[in-house]
Every structure is written in C-alpha cells, then in structure tokens.
Write a protein that binds this DNA or RNA. Sequence first.
DNA 1: TGTATTATATTGGATGTCCGATATATATAA
DNA 2: TTATATATATCGGACATCCAATATAATACA
Lengths: 100, 100
Amino acid sequence: MQGVDGECCDMRGLLGFLILFLLSKKPMHGQEIASELAKRRGDKPSPGTIYPALRSLKDLGFLSEEKEGKTITYRLSAKGEKAFEIAKKRFTKTFLGVLT
Amino acid sequence: MQGVDGECCDMRGLLGFLILFLLSKKPMHGQEIASELAKRRGDKPSPGTIYPALRSLKDLGFLSEEKEGKTITYRLSAKGEKAFEIAKKRFTKTFLGVLT
DNA sequence: TGTATTATATTGGATGTCCGATATATATAA
DNA sequence: TTATATATATCGGACATCCAATATAATACA
C-alpha cells in the first residue's frame, strides 16, 4: 500500500470514471480534461496517461470524437452515458457517507 | 481500461481508503470490514485481499489492534485519523460534484 | 476427542493502471 | 522558412493492487 508523509491511498483506477464524469458535464478536448484533473487531484496527468485513457474509453464505445484542426473534442456517446450512470451508482453506494 | 457489459472503472486503489473510512466510524475486526465492503461494493474481498491491506495500514502506523480470542479489533490510530482526513480532503476535492 | 466453523495470516503471481520517453501533426510567430 | 508552442499519439515497462491457494489458530459442539 502506498503511503507517504502520513498520506495514503493512491486512488488508482478512477481515471476512466473521472473522465466520464467530466465529459458528462460538457464535451472537452484532451488537454482541457487534463487541466481539469490537475485542478481536482493536484497533479496533471501526462499525455502518456490521458490519451491512452481516452483511447480505451473510445474503444469501449463510450466516447465520440470531433476533430477540428489539431484538437479533438470528446463527448459521451449514449453507451458512455449509460456506463457512467451505472458506474456512478456503484460509486455512490460504495462511498456513501464519505462526503457529507 | 477495464470495461465489461457497459460498465467501466475498477476503482482499484481505494481499498485502503475505504478501510480507513469504515474504521473512522467505529472499530471493527477483519471479517466485519469485509462484510461491510460486500454491502457497499457488491463483492466481498477475500482474506487474501483484506488482511494484507490491514497489515499495510498497520505497518504505516494508521491502525492499532486489540486481540481478543481469535478476533482482532482494529481502530484508527491518531496518525491514521490524520491520514484519513488528508485523504478525505483530496477525495472530496477530486470527486466534487459526482455525488449530488 | 474429533469435526466443523470462524478469524486471521502469508505468499506468489496475474493483472491492469499509469507514466516517461518519444514521435507526429497543426498552428503561430519571427 | 525556421523556430516555438500546443495537441494528440504510442509503446515499453515500472509499479501497486488484488486474489487464489494455502496455512495456522481459536472456538464450538457432538
């Protein structure tokens, strides 16, 4: 288990969930997502983290893309919205009482 | 990325955080924690999962133990409480807006 | 005493997440 | 046109989490 300076819990495995969450609010492109994650978690995911994650979600059919110039805007597909709702339910049930 | 049948996000890395959370509510022993996790996540962590996790948290100085017969009651140490507060802050900031 | 049940413990490895390094493409500016 | 900045992309591997298998200890009961 990871624990540095009295901290713990690396919360790994939630990157995909967070991306789905952010995109459920509004469509964004990769760097925009990375910046938002930086604000929330405190550290900005590197390109080697964010793009493979987006790729995976796209391969799962959860995202659709729209390319314009050098930027690609991602948004949730219908399947992605459904997946997020399911994941959110599980998340809520699991962490009931943590945030309050 | 993990994704089966329209689901996604394995939420790995949060076991330690969840254990700290549960123990912040009340002292519990290992199987009690496992059962509570089963209720929340839907699947019960195996002994090979829960005890190494407890061991790690104890090695980090986050838990104290009290043995009585064959059961060991775990509770947060002062250091553990502090670690949980820090982790909770980060968690809250990261997932702001997900639960509401 | 022997059997079953419950709680705890360890370890070896499978698995998946994530990141550093690197590359490509587009746009902007001097 | 060259240089710089920004956005996207891939790959290889380091790393940690988690679990199956297995073992030990304590309790209960017949």
